[in-house]
Simulated scan of single mutants.
Amino acid sequence: MQFGDINVTLKNHVAIVEIQRPPYNFFDVALIEDLADAFDAMDAETDCRALVLAAQGKAFCAGANFSSGPSVLEQSDGKGRNPLYVAAVRLFSNKKPVVGAIQGAAIGGGLGLALVPDFRVTCPDASFGANFSKLGFHPGFGLTHTLPAIIGQQKAALMFYTGRRIKGEQAYEWGLADILTSADQVRAEAIALAQEIAGNAPLAVVSVRATMRQGLTEMLHAVTDHEASEQDWQRLTEDFKEGVASVAERRPGNFKGK
């Protein structure tokens, strides 16, 4: 099955949902909406019991595609909500377990996407970064809730304030990843974990997952509304323009606080 740049294959009760925008898999609103459509389709597919979220190419997802225009960031109405985050919350609202195969960089909103799965498999060469402060921009994609929920408030603050990247081994030590393996085994290990989950009673798995994630969708609606409202005014600042330019040019930002 194909949903735009998202391919889905289903075998042995496990759906491999693959992002196909190599090498960096930059996202825009359309990609996240297509991904949410794929997740919805697998929720409706009785033969699917677990999903693996994977990506082609060098990176898992290197962040937003700013070259696609301001629609990546702009709100759709005056309520602090934009279509990107509406689609993002849909991803967190799916019913079936998801294992992430994080074979490369997961940066910015790409880190937010990497935190959609229940579990993450990664390798030493992968990197995880919340580089929003380097862009002159507030974190989004629900990260201000999901990241501290996984690694703790202190470590999340360190990643947000510095914008630094951490490698796969440190991600594993911090609990950001659940399995550390070699780069060529990331997807295979993710599939193996998904198959282990799929071997259990599906109604029980879906039920306990819903219990453990109770209130998450409502929380993320509120969180992404706040993130979007902060991003809305910050994207108009000189610092944001400088941040995007400096990251693209791989140089330190020259920020003015304006």
Rank of each mutant, 00 (worst) to 15 (best):
G4A: 02
I6R: 00
N7T: 12
V8W: 00
H13P: 00
E18F: 00
E18S: 07
P22L: 02
Y24T: 11
N25T: 05
I32E: 08
E33D: 12
L35Q: 13
A38G: 11
F39W: 01
A41Y: 06
A44I: 01
E45K: 06
T46K: 12
D47A: 14
C48A: 14
R49C: 14
F60H: 07
G63Q: 09
F66K: 06
S67P: 00
S68C: 03
K79Y: 12
K79P: 04
N82M: 07
A87Q: 12
L91N: 12
N94A: 07
N94E: 04
V98C: 06
V99R: 01
A101F: 00
I102S: 03
G104N: 04
I107P: 09
P117Y: 00
R120E: 08
T122P: 03
K134N: 00
G136M: 02
G136L: 02
P148H: 04
P148K: 03
I151H: 01
I151C: 03
L158F: 07
T162H: 01
T162K: 05
G163T: 05
R165K: 09
K167V: 04
E169Q: 10
T181K: 04
A183R: 12
D184P: 00
D184C: 05
V186N: 01
A188F: 10
L193H: 02
A194T: 09
A194K: 00
G199A: 15
A201W: 13
S207M: 11
M212C: 15
G215W: 09
L216H: 10
L220N: 12
V223C: 08
E230R: 13
D232I: 05
D232G: 09
L236N: 07
T237R: 07
D239Y: 03
A245I: 09
E249V: 06
G253M: 05
K256D: 08
G257M: 06
G257R: 07
K258S: 10
